[in-house]
């Protein structure tokens, strides 16, 4: 044991054992998640088959189709308005969803973090239940509230404020409302996890040094909660950008987001290469967001504290 050689042999045996132990998990993920992703990359460079699937002919049409469209008769390329507008709308809706969940989620997380120890658990449970509840059911619940004969229209008509129901369902507003609703717990939990560790003696110190409540919020609490705020934003932005269920139920098939556009290419569209290229585009945006996160929070995590 005292010889470095013996130690090294033991260590390499330990590492070999560790590889063996992690092998099942790695194989499962490789076979049913990571591996297929590489096939998507491959498919995006092939030609579409007549009934879906692909033909084994290299082609850039899938990628060209993301931003451009070929006129059926003249064969000229122009900007694919439909795709680009869906792409832009998806990014915008996801960003707005992130900002709105941030505006509501931060005070909510702060509220929970400042409850007395005994009741804090209860508030936390109340935010955790929706987090664990089926997203489909929660979207369905929103649907019932904003339908033409739903709760909101019903109450407004009873009060005589409107005579005919307001069309809320199948609009961008409906998608936004639904996404804010389903993703709010994803914002609250990481922000709470951060605020829970906030040292309120720092807040006292700031008050002691003449900071007003607003200044304490902007100069002390928010800067210290920044890692949680960024984590929450990423956790909301990524699924929002790839959202499929919420826009397809609340958008009613007319107001598409990127997720629905991708689905279309594998369904009615029968353009698997285009669908693959759109999927990779979505993944690239997500990767960019993750890199932003690592840059801003990852480096702070390793800072000595």
């Amino acid at each position: 044991m005292t010889q470095p050689g013996a130690n090294e042999a033991e260590r390499s045996r330990d590492i070999r054992k560790r590889w063996l132990l992690s092998l099942p998990a790695l194989l499962i993920v490789l076979a049913a998640a990571t591996g297929p992703l590489l096939i998507v990359v491959l498919y995006s460079f092939l030609s579409p088959g007549p009934y879906g699937d692909v033909q084994w002919q290299p082609s850039m049409d899938g990628w060209i189709g993301v931003f451009l469209e070929r006129d059926m008769f003249t064969e000229t390329l122009s900007i694919a308005d439909a795709h680009v507008s869906i792409l832009i709308r998806s990014v915008m809706l996801s960003l707005v969803t992130t900002v709105v969940t941030l505006l509501f989620g931060f005070p909510t997380a702060y509220f929970i973090a400042t409850r007395p120890e005994r009741t804090r658990e209860l508030w936390l449970l109340l935010i955790t239940i929706p987090f664990w509840t089926n997203l489909l059911i929660r979207t369905f619940a929103v649907l019932q509230i904003i339908r033409n004969d739903g709760l909101i229209n019903g109450v407004l008509m009873k009060l005589g404020l409107i005579t005919r129901p307001i069309q809320m369902l199948f609009t961008d507003g409906a998608i936004l409302t639904g996404m804010v609703y389903v993703y709010l717990p994803l914002m609250v939990l990481p922000v709470y996890a951060n605020l829970e560790k906030l040292d309120f003696r720092l807040v006292e110190a700031a008050y002691d040094l003449y900071a007003t409540p607003f200044r304490v919020l902007t100069r002390i609490i928010i800067p210290l909660a920044k890692p949680g705020l960024i984590a929450g934003s990423i956790l909301v932005f990524i699924p929002a950008l790839g959202a499929y269920v919420t826009p397809s139920i609340l958008g009613g098939g007319k107001n598409l987001m990127l997720g629905n556009l991708i689905e279309l290419q594998f369904g009615q569209g029968r353009n698997w290469p285009l669908g693959s290229a759109l999927s990779i585009t979505l993944m690239l945006i997500v990767t960019a967001a993750l890199l932003f996160y690592v840059r801003n929070v990852g480096s702070q995590g390793s800072r000595h504290g």
Partner: peptide, 20 residues
């Protein structure tokens, strides 16, 4: 009077220096 209006300052036991 709230603390941010009092001409009194404190040295905290934990120092409470702003880490950021």
């Amino acid at each position: 009077m709230p603390p941010f209006k009092r001409p009194i300052n404190t040295v905290f036991q934990s120092y409470a220096l702003f880490p950021h």
